[in-house]
Each structure stands twice: as structure tokens, then as C-alpha cells.
């Protein structure tokens, strides 16, 4: 027991600091991906509801692909394929420059695409709950399009979308562990390194599981708060 505690300690030879650093990487990857994926998802949702058949088709193809591919494969395709693609694009435009997609950026793009595909469904559902009359009433009050979205539609949208989005976030948080396979040093990679060095797989993989559980629980509280806030104008019953 003593040994295990010293393995996880923050002192020299302990892996506490390393695991904390990994946790920060996991969190910053997930938090950077979140707005990217959510905005893209909202865009896809608006396309799916548009009158243009072409836009609707694009939205369908997008969600089919990124909901259907394994996240690991999406990540590898973005990481290796994205680099090759950009290199060719730049060469075609006659630039000599070298552009790098590092593991973090590849993660943000890949997980962002996946999150967009899944959250677009949540957005579509939430947009459907907002009655036409709301838009009409807002315009009757003389609100501009942007103001009616910000003041009338958005608050109601969030109320309907939050439970679904909180699920999306939890999935995202766990999916980020796949980034360890392209050597970004997140919780999972750090754990693998610790296991390699200490030969204590039980201790470290359990610790990793609990770190993710703590992150999930923490975000659970955050979402409960946000949901209360989003619901404050809503009378139940």
C-alpha cells in the first residue's frame, strides 16, 4: 500500500505530477474541441433543416460518415491523411512551406467532426421544439434576426439541447483517450508510460479510470448547474 501511494505521489519518482499534467492535456483537448464541434454541429443541423435539397444531402452524408466511422480510424485518417492532403494542396498552389498537423490539432479536428455529427442530431431535435410562433412573435416585436435568435430562440434552444449535449460531452471526454495512440501525452498515454516504467498495470490503469470518473463527475455538476440556469425561466407543469 505504501509502495502504491509513493508511486502515485507528487514527489520525485512518483507519477503524480505526470498524471496531473496528463489530466490537463486531456481536459484542454476536450475543452478546445467542444466549441469547435458544437458550432459545426449547429451548422450541420441548420443545413439538415434547410430548404435546399443539396444542403440537406451534404448534412446527411456528413453525419453518416462521422457517426459511422470508428473514432480511432477518424483520428488516424485526419492525422496521417490530413497532413498528406495539406502538403499536396500547398504544393499545388506552389508553396514550399511546411505545415504541420500536430497530434493535438489532429485530435481537435477529428473529435470535432465526430462531436459535430452527434451533436447535430441533438440540435435538430432542440430546434424542432421551438414553435414557429416564437420567430413570428419576435419579428412582430421588431427584433432583428440576430436579436431574436439571441434573446428568444437561443435560450429555449439551450434548455432543450443541454441534456443531449451533456451526453455528447461525456462521450467526447472518454474518446479523447484515443489520442494516446498518436503519442499526445494525455492521461492514457501517461498511464501507459508509467506502466512501462513501473510494471504496475493494475494500479495505474485503475487510477486512469478513476481520473476519468472524476472528470465525468465534475462535468456532471457543471451541467446540472447549467441546466438549472437554462430552466430558470421555465415553469414546470
Amino acid at each position: 500500500m505504501q509502495d502504491i501511494l509513493s508511486l502515485l505521489s507528487f514527489s520525485d519518482g512518483g507519477w503524480g505530477t505526470a498524471l496531473a499534467a496528463g489530466t490537463l492535456v486531456t481536459l484542454s483537448l476536450a475543452l478546445t474541441t467542444l466549441p469547435v464541434g458544437l458550432f459545426l454541429g449547429l451548422g450541420v443541423a441548420l443545413m439538415a433543416r434547410s430548404n435546399s435539397p443539396r444542403l440537406r444531402a451534404i448534412a446527411t452524408v456528413f453525419t453518416t460518415i462521422f457517426r459511422g466511422l470508428p473514432e480511432l480510424l477518424t483520428l488516424l485518417i485526419v492525422y496521417y491523411g490530413g497532413q498528406i492532403l495539406i502538403q499536396r494542396l500547398m504544393a499545388a498552389m506552389g508553396f514550399e512551406a511546411q505545415i504541420q498537423i500536430n497530434a493535438f490539432l489532429a485530435g481537435v479536428i477529428a473529435f470535432g467532426l465526430v462531436l459535430a455529427a452527434f451533436s447535430s442530431e441533438v440540435w435538430v431535435g432542440a430546434l424542432n421544439t421551438i414553435a414557429r410562433g416564437q420567430y413570428e412573435a419576435a419579428s412582430a416585436l421588431g427584433l432583428t434576426k440576430w436579436l431574436s435568435f439571441r434573446l428568444v430562440v437561443f435560450p429555449q434552444l439551450m434548455r432543450a439541447a443541454l441534456p443531449g449535449l451533456s451526453n455528447n460531452w461525456l462521450t467526447l471526454l472518454k474518446d479523447t483517450s484515443l489520442i494516446s495512440t498518436i503519442s499526445l501525452v494525455d492521461i492514457m498515454r501517461q498511464t501507459n508510460l508509467a506502466v512501462g516504467a513501473t510494471k504496475q498495470p493494475m494500479v495505474f490503469y485503475l487510477t486512469a479510470c478513476f481520473l476519468y470518473l472524476i472528470l465525468s463527475a465534475g462535468s456532471g455538476f457543471a451541467f446540472a448547474f447549467l441546466e438549472r440556469r437554462a430552466n430558470r425561466g421555465h415553469v414546470r407543469g
Partner: peptide, 8 residues
């Protein structure tokens, strides 16, 4: 449900 399948 709270931890990644990879870790499990």
C-alpha cells in the same frame, strides 16, 4: 460508463 473503454 464514466471511464473510457480503452482504459478498461
Amino acid at each position: 460508463r464514466g471511464s473510457p473503454l480503452l482504459a478498461q
